[in-house]
Amino acid sequence: MDILVCIKQVPDTKDIKLDPETNTLKREGVESIVNPFDMYAVETALMLKDEWGGTVRAVTMGPPQAEQALREVVSYGVDEVALFSDRAFAGADTWATAYTLAKGIRKLGDFDLIICGKQAVDGDTAQVGPGLAQQLDLPFITFVRRIVKIELDSRTMVVERLMDDGYDVVETSLPALLTVVKEINELRVPSLKGKMKAKKIDIPIYSAADLEVDPDSVGLTGSYTQVIEVFAPKPRGNRIILEGETEEQVEKLLNGLTKDKVLSVKID
């Protein structure tokens, strides 16, 4: 099976905060990581490769430093990588991102399966996967939590996709695109040989011209949505600790909750 994984380099969101004074992102000390959900996509691809053979390729769209993210997945066992990078791609929304990825992936050739993480933790949109599938005219299944079976002869696979109230068992024809949730597997560790390879591997960079994109469809120009304002969320900032012995605390709590109308208990 030839599998392609789409990854994204993101800032480690737990460190990201907006400075309420200046309304700017505090960036100092914020590390770049591979989007955690994408690592599950990589693991899924590697497990399928272990079982079925073939190759695993990873691509990303991003600034030149995004090659670090690609090197990281190589250390886990990804065979080949490619970086789609051009100033013209900057400011892309999910539509323009999916368009650019689709152009790049078409350049790289055919794949049996494309796997993405369910969403990126910086944007949290979960839109690029389905959008990419549509751009490539592929069937897709989102939020996959388990691969039930693959039949290469009939070119079909069956998966479980997580729903809000349980899960659906869905069959798709191949090639297809999946987005995966964390539940699907447990990450392996990188290998020393992989790390050595990652250090040396030559990462091909594809520019807008290489991908033959329509200049009006990439980056900010190609984006339908525009961010007009960013601001810090209202802090909750109450931090009220109830005083007293356990009994007293519980009384205060239940009285408070009743007053807040979130609990219908009559406390005398």
């Binding site: 969101t13 992102l25 339908y224 949505t225 960013v230 969320p233």
Partner: peptide
């Protein structure tokens, strides 16, 4: 919300 809820963004879609 974006960045795990650490910032909020207001977005418009003027052309589509």
């Amino acid at each position: 919300p974006a960045f795990g809820g650490n910032i909020m963004a207001t977005i418009v879609c003027p052309a589509g």
